[in-house]
Amino acid sequence: MSLVTSSGYAHVRLTVTDIERSVAFYDRVFGWDKAVDAREHQGEPGLEEAPEKFYGGVVYQTPQGSLFGLRPVGSQPFRSDVTGLDHVSFAVASRADLDAAAQALGDSGIPHGEIIELADAGIAILSFQDPDDVNLELTSPLD
Rank of each mutant, 00 (worst) to 15 (best):
M1Q: 06
V4H: 09
T5G: 02
S6A: 14
G8H: 04
Y9M: 09
Y9P: 01
Y9V: 08
Y9K: 02
Y9R: 00
A10F: 02
A10M: 08
V12N: 08
L14V: 13
T15I: 10
V16I: 14
T17I: 09
T17P: 06
I19P: 02
E20C: 01
E20G: 13
V23H: 00
F25G: 02
D27Q: 04
G31K: 10
W32N: 02
W32Y: 04
K34C: 05
V36C: 03
D37M: 05
D37T: 07
R39A: 11
E40L: 12
E40H: 15
H41C: 06
H41F: 15
Q42G: 14
Q42Y: 13
P45G: 14
L47G: 09
A50Y: 06
P51N: 08
F54Y: 13
F54A: 10
G56H: 03
V58T: 07
V59R: 02
V59M: 10
Q61N: 07
Q61I: 00
Q61T: 10
T62R: 00
T62S: 03
P63G: 12
P63S: 06
L67R: 09
L70G: 03
L70F: 14
P72Y: 13
V73W: 14
S75E: 15
P77A: 12
P77G: 11
P77T: 15
D81Q: 14
T83E: 14
T83N: 15
L85M: 14
H87N: 12
V88P: 04
F90E: 00
A91H: 03
A91G: 04
A91N: 01
V92Y: 01
V92G: 01
A93G: 05
A93K: 06
A93F: 00
R95W: 07
R95F: 04
R95L: 11
R95Y: 07
D97N: 04
D97T: 01
D99A: 10
Q103S: 12
L105P: 01
D107I: 05
D107H: 08
S108A: 15
S108W: 00
S108E: 13
S108L: 08
G109T: 05
G109C: 05
I110K: 00
P111Q: 12
G113A: 14
E114W: 01
E114M: 08
I115R: 08
I115M: 02
I116H: 11
D120M: 09
D120K: 03
D120F: 11
A124Q: 03
A124M: 04
I125D: 10
L126Q: 05
L126G: 02
F128I: 08
F128A: 11
Q129C: 11
P131E: 09
D132T: 10
T139G: 01
S140T: 07
S140C: 06
S140A: 15
S140P: 01
P141E: 10
L142R: 06
